[in-house]
Structures are given as structure tokens and as C-alpha cells.
Amino acid sequence: MLLFLILLAVVILYKFLCSRKKAKLTPYMLEYFLKITDPVPLCGKPDVVWMNRKGILIVGDYKSRCHNKVYDSDVIQLSVYRLLVEKTQQKPVASFGYIHFKGASRKVKLLSEREIIDLYHRYWKIIEGQVKPNQAGNNSYCQNCSHQSICSSW
């Protein structure tokens, strides 16, 4: 009878441990420098890359600003991180990422590889003077811009 109770306790404990839910996301990579040369040269250091239960990687970035507004530049940055992770880790990467603010998180849809490549080429055409940049919709964006010297709007 004692052996039966011990065996029953072991089976119950085993079933309990197997039934516990795993964490939804587990850290996969933290602030690791990544670099690629193909399809375009890019480098960066994602704040965090998580892996979900299905083995899919998800990029994340932490922002220290007080407001929870997501800017286009945030989405571009996270999208570049996604491309870097995709090309260096040989694992599936989600088409979305998370931007974490103080006290809140936002899930954002990321740009495609093609959109990142197009932005890369447009950036260099602007720098080389082949294309005029679009004027910012809000002049306050221009106050700390590093391209003021080549901008006709400034």
C-alpha cells in the first residue's frame, strides 16, 4: 500500500510539472552586436530578442522617454533589428516587435526586407544629393537633425 501511494504521488507530481505553462517569451539575445553585408550593409545591437514557445524570435527595444508614442524611426530601427536577426540567426523571426516604454509596451508591425532595402538606398541617394529629402511634417523634428546643412527647408 505504501509503495502504491508513493507511486501515485510521483505520477501526480510528474503530471503537475508537465502541465505548468512555460513563459510566453524567453530571452534569446540581449544587446548583442549584429552585422550583415547582404542584402545591404547594416549593423546594430537589439536591446532584446525573445523566443516564443513556437521557436519564433521577436525583437524588442526599450525607450526611456516619458510618453508612449511610437515614431516611424522606432519602427524603422526595430525593422532593421529584425532583418539583422533574420540574416544572422537562421531562425524564424516575427513580422512584429515590441517597443517598451516606462510602464507600457506597444506591439508594432515591422517593415519588410524590401522596404528596409529601399530606405537604405533612398538614404544614400539623399546624402549624395541625387534625391531631395521630404520635408518633415513638424519643424520641431528638424531642430536636432544631423542633415540641416544639406536641407533646403532649414
Rank of each mutant, 00 (worst) to 15 (best):
L25T: 00
S79A: 10
L119D: 00
Y120H: 03
R122K: 15
V48M: 14
K22G: 05
D74W: 00
T88G: 01
E113T: 15
E113Y: 03
S95Y: 11
L5C: 10
P46R: 08
R82S: 10
S19I: 04
A23I: 05
K109G: 08
Q77D: 14
F101C: 08
I126F: 03
S64Q: 09
Y62S: 14
H67R: 12
F96M: 07
L83N: 06
S95Q: 13
S105W: 06
H67A: 10
V80S: 01
S79C: 09
A94E: 07
Q77R: 09
N68P: 03
A104N: 06
F16I: 09
V75F: 02
K91V: 06
F96P: 00
Y62H: 11
D74N: 07
V80Q: 05
K69P: 00
H100N: 11
K63T: 08
V11D: 02
L111D: 03
K35F: 10
R53H: 09
R122G: 03
A9W: 09
R65W: 07
G44M: 10
Y81I: 11
R20A: 05
G55A: 08
Y98P: 02
L2S: 10
C43R: 14
N52R: 06
L119F: 02
R65I: 10
C43W: 12
G60W: 04
Q77V: 08
V10T: 07
Q90F: 12
L119I: 02
E86T: 12
I76C: 01
G103L: 01
P41N: 11
K15D: 04
V11I: 15
V85H: 01
L119G: 00
W50L: 10
S112D: 07
